[in-house]
Amino acid sequence: MSDFFNAFEMGPVSERGPKAVAPEVFRGIYAMPVFVTVPTSDLAASTDFWVRGFGFIELFSIPGQVVHLRRWAFQDVLLVPAEAGAEVPEVPAMSVSFLCVLSEIDPLVKACSELVPGSVTGPRDTPWRTRDVEVITPEGARVVFTAAQEFDPDSQEAHDLASAGIFAPGSAEGGHNGVHG
């Protein structure tokens, strides 16, 4: 018995692969359950990169203090002024990942590569059936966009995940294993 259960309906995209459609940008105001704060020495340039490169919108800003960017619901980024003299790390130690759909990967690679040549690594396919692209932003943030590929419950990837106790949705083992809540 596993404590894991299929809850894809909780996310903004329940479809995997090339048929998946990106949800609209979410413009509502909510208590953000998680967000990323990115210090930058140039709020305008960073805002331009995140908007034109990644497809975020500027939800609102307080001049010189913060720019609140949003993509899908719960994909929030706050750009804030960096401390004077702060250095941009050459290779960021940590990254932040955002869910996307496959049809967004190629345009994102193209846009970011045009805005900052050499900033993009990938795309690459992972053993857990995602296609990932990594971008180092002008302010030194490592941002990964990850899109779910089609998933074959009879594939080697499915068997590898099952050996870790994670079963494919729709498989005999992938039921709810009782009540979860």
Rank of each mutant, 00 (worst) to 15 (best):
M32H: 04
D42S: 11
M32A: 05
T37E: 00
P23I: 08
G53Y: 03
F49I: 11
P39K: 02
P23Q: 00
P18R: 03
F74S: 05
Q65K: 15
F26L: 05
M32Y: 03
A7W: 00
A31F: 10
P12G: 05
Q65N: 13
V66N: 02
A20D: 07
R71T: 12
W72K: 09
S41T: 06
V51T: 10
R52S: 05
V51D: 02
Q65Y: 13
A20H: 10
I57M: 14
V36G: 10
F56V: 02
E9W: 08
L78A: 00
S46L: 07
G53A: 09
S14Q: 12
W72D: 09
V80A: 11
A45R: 06
V38S: 01
M10A: 03
A44G: 00
W50L: 07
F54P: 06
I29Y: 15
R70Q: 14
F49E: 07
V21Q: 12
G55I: 13
A7G: 04
G28Y: 05
I57W: 13
V34A: 03
Q65S: 14
V66M: 13
L43F: 12
A7D: 14
V38Q: 00
G17P: 09
L79Q: 10
I29C: 15
D48N: 06
K19E: 13
A45P: 10
L79C: 11
L69F: 01
A22V: 10
Q75S: 08
V67M: 08
L69Q: 05
V34L: 00
S46P: 07
F60E: 09
H68G: 03
F74L: 14
N6P: 01
A45W: 09
S41P: 10
F26Q: 01
G55L: 14
S61M: 14
E24V: 02
I57Q: 12
A44W: 00
T47D: 12
Q75P: 02
D42Y: 06
I57L: 14
A45Q: 13
V67T: 05
L78I: 03
I57F: 13
V77A: 04
I57Y: 13
E9G: 00
M32Q: 07
V25H: 01
P39M: 15
P33I: 06
G11H: 13
V25P: 00
E24W: 00
R27H: 05
D42V: 12
P12L: 11
G55F: 12
W50P: 06
K19A: 12
F54L: 15
F8S: 14
V13L: 09
S41E: 14
M32C: 07
G11D: 15
T47H: 05
K19C: 02
V77M: 08
M32F: 05
F54Q: 08
L59I: 00
A31Q: 11
P39Y: 11
F56K: 01
F54G: 11
T40E: 11
G28I: 12
P18H: 06
P63D: 14
V25T: 09
A44F: 01
